[in-house]
Amino acid sequence: MEIEKGKTAKWLKEQRPVPKEVTGKLKEFTKIKKGILNALKEGDKTIPELAKILDMPQDEVVFQLMSLLKYGFVETGEMDDMDEYFYYKIKNNGKN
């Protein structure tokens, strides 16, 4: 049977299911992404501020925020008064 170009992912999904932990990881990322972007919609924030609002370890905020920076959802703002932390702000209202 000829598999239609552009629909091969659907074909592979029919051959084998997607493992639960893979979909679970996506759900978690989507939740964190929403949390970070919603917090930034309220105003620019530093990493410690985001960690406090989201109740997340700071190192995890660094990882996720830097990923969102790379994906184009977030951009870098000014430095804080102590010259320690950057503020990060939402880009294009959270749409990349």
Partner: peptide, 21 residues
């Protein structure tokens, strides 16, 4: 290993070069 096989990449690809087969 980490793909959820949603097909979004295939739909976005302008040259139809993605091939899960």
């Amino acid at each position: 290993e980490n793909c959820i096989l949603c097909g979004a990449c295939e739909r976005a690809c302008p040259t139809n070069c993605i091939d899960f087969t």
